[in-house]
């Protein structure tokens, strides 16, 4: 499946805000509301049975946080990168941990690292960090005693 074909297929199922091809991989920005239905469709009908990881990108200049879902199909060897744009002030998105179980831990990590809230997450507590550190992977993070390392 080429990137164009894939885009055509998922366009019918979800509201795609924007899309681009990045080194042969589809990057599709979907509306947060249609993320879950799109992932279910991709898993069940397009053979994307595999979620490699879920993470986030902080874009302060656009005032957004992108949630990134990297999907892979073991049968057709296709990759797809689904992204959701969230506002930095109120980053909130539905959990997909019941669609891909691996997302449960990845979402917990993204939640504590970027300050995203995943609605309906089964274990919303922190996974790796202690609760007193808030969103360290955001670009404007400055922990109390964090210093820049000499280069």
């Amino acid at each position: 499946m080429t990137v164009r074909e894939l885009l055509e297929k998922i366009k019918q199922k979800a509201e795609i805000e924007d899309s681009k091809e990045d080194l042969g991989v589809l990057n599709a920005y979907v509306k947060p509301s249609s993320l879950r239905s799109l992932l279910i469709y991709m898993r069940d009908s397009l053979g994307f049975d595999w979620m490699s990881f879920m993470t986030a990108l902080d874009m302060p200049q656009e005032n957004t946080i992108e949630a990134v879902y990297e999907l892979f199909s073991n049968s057709s060897k296709d990759s797809a990168r689904i992204k959701v744009k969230l506002s930095r002030q109120a980053a909130e998105v539905e959990t997909v941990s019941d669609i891909y179980r691996t997302a449960e831990w990845h979402e917990r990590e993204a939640a504590e690292m970027f300050g995203i809230t995943f609605k309906n997450h089964p274990h919303p507590e922190n996974l790796i960090l202690t609760p007193d550190i808030k969103a360290p992977l955001r670009k404007d993070f400055s922990g109390g005693d964090m210093k820049r390392m000499p280069e």
């Binding site: 990108l57 902080d58 990134v68 990297e70 179980r101 691996t102 449960e104 831990w105």
Partner: peptide
């Protein structure tokens, strides 16, 4: 896996490492 995002500068904008033990342990 390594997910590297470049912003065109000499430093990576974001590097995400996908570690197998992380997913394996979650199961």
């Amino acid at each position: 896996g390594a997910y590297v995002v470049s912003a065109g500068t000499d430093k990576p904008y974001r590097v995400k490492f996908r570690s197998p033990s992380f997913s394996n342990l979650s199961a």
